[in-house]
Write a protein that binds this DNA or RNA. Sequence first.
DNA 1: TGCGGCTATGACTACGTAGTCATATGATGC
DNA 2: GCATCATATGACTACGTAGTCATAGCCGCA
Lengths: 349, 349
Amino acid sequence: MREKRTGRVTSVEVAAEAGVSQATVARTFSSPHLVADASKEKVRAAAERLGYVPNAIARSLKSQRTNIVGAVVPARSEYWQHLVAEISQQLAERGSQLLLFTFTKPSEVASVVESLRQYRVDGVLLASSFIDNDAVSVVSSLGIPAVAFNHPEALDISGSVTVDNEGGAALLAEHLVETGHRSVAFVGGDSETGSDRRRFKGASTTLDRHGIICPYIAAGSFDYEAGYNIAAKLLDHFGGAGALPDALMVAGDELAFGVIDGLRANGVAVPDDVSVTGFDGLPQASWAGFDITTLVQPAEELIRVALEQLASPDGDGQEHISVGGFVRVGGSTRRPGHTNLNNAEGSSQ
Amino acid sequence: MREKRTGRVTSVEVAAEAGVSQATVARTFSSPHLVADASKEKVRAAAERLGYVPNAIARSLKSQRTNIVGAVVPARSEYWQHLVAEISQQLAERGSQLLLFTFTKPSEVASVVESLRQYRVDGVLLASSFIDNDAVSVVSSLGIPAVAFNHPEALDISGSVTVDNEGGAALLAEHLVETGHRSVAFVGGDSETGSDRRRFKGASTTLDRHGIICPYIAAGSFDYEAGYNIAAKLLDHFGGAGALPDALMVAGDELAFGVIDGLRANGVAVPDDVSVTGFDGLPQASWAGFDITTLVQPAEELIRVALEQLASPDGDGQEHISVGGFVRVGGSTRRPGHTNLNNAEGSSQ
DNA sequence: TGCGGCTATGACTACGTAGTCATATGATGC
DNA sequence: GCATCATATGACTACGTAGTCATAGCCGCA
């Protein structure tokens, strides 16, 4: 009785067992339409008996396709953790695998790229505005299809997919104006990133059109900690809780969580003393404790578009796609009933 | 002038360029100690000129090692998102890559396992108590070293690493007793999971020893939603906010976030009306808005131990390791000063 | 001088698959 | 009844590397 030497059975052995050639076994699994039903049956039965599983490594070597997509994302980011789940799911649907790389400092990206080159991934999702253009250009100059995700800076180097940061921030700003907010400040994350700058631009331009001047206040990064710490400084800056603007537009949801918690720790009520908006549409933004008014990034669509670009024939992927988001209204902003601009003053503090 | 056909240069071409044999090129990159310094120099220079990068796929085929570790985790879980970052970091330090698979329903695990077999990963981290024993046994019966992570049920099938759920829950229970809580209920997640059962066991046994009977209340799953929804039912069950026990021990942090938000939405103050503890030690548990008293799982250690087990020679990995956690005291539980058991009544409601 | 031992290197081959080419078998057209 | 064609299959080889084996050169010691 033949034993199942599982995981080490080859197509040759299956061929012997099934009484066909190795080629027929290979075809049964990779191009079944080329094999007669009777043969397929025999092969499948033999494979079953022996515990055969096609070797994807060998297949990749021969076919020059790995069916593996690499993703390079920052390790500690609620936003990217959220997206990775979506990436993974969509890749699975396409029959591809996800080779995940995380980094905590941008300087780690270089060595990651080296690994990606070695593994001959079919494509790379460079997922972050924290990745500098050098890394992006290295990858794409290697002939690896790359899509810079939410990295609107990478315009001339590789394909890119991003939410419409400017338009999204504009939508949020419009919403604030419509709900009667007359003074707004913008709390930025990492001002080195294009996302941050574009969100501020969208906000300030829109507010400006309504005669509101929107100062930029830098938290330094997009994480909770930064938001929490900036809260006290905001109070200093404006001269106390009573002097805060009507609303704070925060550049990212995680940052906004920190801002809200920090404000509350300082006795500021959200939204009663100040409205707060976020940006990203994280699941946690809907949690009752925060319930943030935020711009929801259509994660499913963003990633679908990005993967389609990776899958498209090389070179054609040099597109730069911007996807619109939508405002999710939560309890972190005041909603003075059907207030319009005429009586908006009533909702100001 | 030779062009850099990047990504498609082979060791043979580098050998020709450097004036050595292919074997010497291969050795320069995989066993440099076998190559004379002078040759290494020539090879490195030639490789640089041609833009050569070793092909990890071919290497894997030849050497029967992929340097890839697979991880199978639930897609929507704060806890696992937290751990994936740690896994990824530690694998990078070991020169390995992470092939990530996520699932939303346990039924999806089967197809994931199929992919893992094809890719001949060096090992698999089966990261969840949601994965049934069938899947675990399939993997390990394939000769793929597998470590069931936080899956204390898998005792006879593969190696496993888990936090000491029972001991951790006992620590939390002790803390509650020490801080004067005299009545406690346990809010469970998915009672099908061993983690849930053991945490309850640790809690109830310990509380029992102090004369406290701890009922089990099922939220059904470990996610925020479940926690939020169970809050109202808790009030029903106990007959109003005033009749709640002194403390609720919740089986997981994310679940606890939901419980807290749900309680607050129903006008219950945490910790003033009821103390709440979590379990996991997620970063968010330290956020000011929640600031949960929780059992911190030592993520770094857990994963290090798991990876060491994967790396150990096959067969030896059949160990079942339990790692202790520690209590992080937050603001979600009352701390009546130096209250001890003698005057604990004073802090009861 | 001669011989064992050590280092560095090249020739060769296997890893397991998929695609190319050639061939055999029927089925179809005139 | 012969040429044509589609289908099914087998033999063969290449994908790019790493390890095995053999050999050449070299040192030291008798």
